[in-house]
Design a protein around this nucleic acid. Structure first.
Length: 331
DNA sequence: TGCCAGGCGGGGT
DNA sequence: ACCCCGCATGGC
């Protein structure tokens, strides 16, 4: 994992659809090395090339991005491709007015349009989203993200970028190569699943560009063919990578929260799923994302306590890592 | 110590 | 369609 010297290949400016909050969008579920001083670094992967974008926002809300290519080889990527990718990752054109309308009086999410106004979900690749999903299986928020962190540190390529060390997200080929060392990331039985996903991507059995073409149900079914990937992981990955907000990644945590918040009698997964699909509609995936944010991804008993006390704003400073503070507390 | 946690698959009924 | 169990690991 040699040290690379990234080179500047382009500069772009964007006018996001207002209201937009770059700061919150980038901080959520991120790692410390993706910040250069206060400025976020966005990671892009285009045609197997690694790019890092040093990004900032001016007082008028214009977003600027300096794009650096990590590889020293020549790659053929058009500025247009880079620009579109950044727009998509940061959700710069996403119109949330209908979402805000939907959750205006929601017992879980009503604070979002006020305290998190302008925040978008920041996407990652399908591969990395699956990796995150697998790490969340049957584990707490903290345990899961420690696994992701371990994987990045152990198997991600280390880059020196403006004097700071950055770990790129590990790629499938590296995970296949070091498959017998996955235990070091403390994944437990999840190692086997991650290995199978990495193999599928390496063989090009699984390819993000193919999955994009499928409709929601086909895409979920396709991902569920991998042993160890079930509906939750598949849907979460499609929400995080492709903004398929119609999908509802329902886990036991949300199942218990929702049954309490909406007073669903004799709750079970099917019943709660049906309820939330109707309630949140085309915004399910985004609603799930924001539910974890506003409750700081607290373990279920504490999250239920917060719900009862109507404490539905995230902590912007905290001692324990939360989705919004893990970037400075988890390393 | 012995549970249990933001799943899953495989076995039962 | 359900229900139930075991599964690595870490945290309490």
């Amino acid at each position: 994992m040699g040290i690379q010297k990234p080179s500047l290949i382009g500069e772009f400016s964007f006018k996001p659809l207002a209201p937009y909050n770059l700061n919150l969008t980038v901080k959520a579920y991120n790692f410390s090395w993706f910040f250069q001083n206060e400025n976020p670094i966005i990671y892009l992967n285009i045609e197997d090339a690694n790019l890092l974008c040093l990004t900032h926002e001016d007082k008028k809300g214009i977003v600027y991005s300096k794009v650096y290519l990590v590889e020293d080889k020549n790659v053929n990527i058009t500025p247009q491709t880079i620009k579109e990718k950044i727009r998509f990752i940061l959700g710069l054109d996403e119109d949330l007015s209908n979402f805000y309308q939907t959750i205006r009086k929601d017992p879980l999410l009503h604070r979002v349009p006020k305290v998190l106004v302008g925040m978008r979900l920041r996407t990652t690749s399908l591969w990395n989203a699956l990796l995150i999903g697998v790490c969340q299986q049957n584990a707490s928020f903290l345990q899961g993200w420690k696994m992701v962190l371990n994987l990045h540190r152990l198997f991600g390529r280390k880059i020196k970028f403006f004097g700071k060390e950055i770990f790129l997200p590990p790629n499938p080929k590296t995970i296949v190569k070091y498959a017998d060392r996955l235990g070091e990331a403390r994944l437990g039985y999840r190692s086997e699943t991650l290995k199978r996903i990495a193999e599928a991507f390496s063989r090009k059995d699984l390819f993000e560009k193919e999955i994009i073409k499928l409709d929601d149900e086909e895409a979920v079914d396709r991902l569920c063919l991998i042993r160890g990937v079930g509906e939750y992981t598949a849907k979460l990955a499609l929400v995080f990578s492709q903004r398929r907000y119609s999908l509802l990644p329902l886990d036991r945590w949300l199942m218990r929260l929702a049954s309490e918040a909406y007073k669903i009698k004799n709750p079970n997964m099917k019943k709660v799923e049906k309820f939330l699909l109707e309630r949140w509609g085309e915004w399910c995936g985004l609603a799930v994302f924001f539910t974890t944010i506003v409750l700081d991804a607290e373990p279920i008993s504490l999250a239920l306590e917060r719900l009862r006390k109507n404490e539905l704003s995230p902590k912007f400073e905290s001692e324990k890592p939360t989705p919004l503070t893990m970037y400075k507390l988890l390393y």
